[in-house]
């Protein structure tokens, strides 16, 4: 009898707790994968596809789910790799590409024939224009992803490094790195 009562109490407890857990699972369901979101927040959102994935989100998902390397994002640079490594607790690896300075695409408006191919290629809607009308790039919206270069039939798009101006100038890091003196050859 006592055993039955004990089992009944345990069973009741299990049911109550199970119900609470089930309720919590539905009520506090986390939308999306928080890790993917965190990774995506670090990625520079250029949507350039240089990592081999069609955008930053697919790359973030690949890092989170299938253990993709974290050093495949050239626009993010070494600092991006560092931050991803910090987030995921992985080892910092050298960037798997050449790091490029921040750039912007520029359309030579005299050469542009108005084919709209670059407009279709731009992942971030930074090109305005219409068929047989001159196209132009909204510079502040351009991420410098270079995806508009290959489709252009007249090669009128070029990529230029964003110059330093008073508005984007930054104070330099005041610490001068101490360089190690070259080791003397052992006699």
């Amino acid at each position: 009898m006592e055993i039955a009562l004990a089992i009944a109490i345990m069973a009741l407890g299990a049911v109550v707790l199970g119900a609470a857990l089930g309720f919590a699972a539905i009520k506090f369901k986390v939308e999306g994968d928080p890790l993917v979101e965190k990774i995506e927040a670090i990625l520079p959102q250029t949507q350039c596809g240089q990592c081999g994935y069609p955008g930053c989100k697919p790359y973030a998902e690949a890092i989170a789910k299938s253990g993709e390397e974290i050093n495949k994002c050239p626009p993010g640079g070494t600092e991006g790799v560092q931050r991803l490594a910090d987030l995921l607790g992985r080892e910092v690896k050298p960037l798997d590409a050449v790091e490029k300075p921040k750039s912007v695409a520029i359309i030579d408006e005299n050469t542009c024939i108005g084919c709209t191919l670059c407009i279709q290629a731009c992942p971030v809607d930074a090109i305005v224009g219409a068929a047989k009308q001159m196209h132009t790039i909204i510079a502040p919206m351009c991420t410098g992803c270079e995806l508009c270069l290959p489709p252009c039939p007249v090669e009128c798009i070029r990529i230029e490094v964003i110059p330093e101006t008073i508005d984007n100038w930054k104070w330099r890091y005041p610490v001068t790195e101490i360089k190690a003196a070259p080791m003397r050859e052992a006699a």
Binding site: Q45, T46, Q47, P123, M141
Partner: peptide
């Protein structure tokens, strides 16, 4: 980056 993501 946020606005680029939104547009993308």
């Amino acid at each position: 980056a946020d606005s680029a993501k939104e547009r993308f």
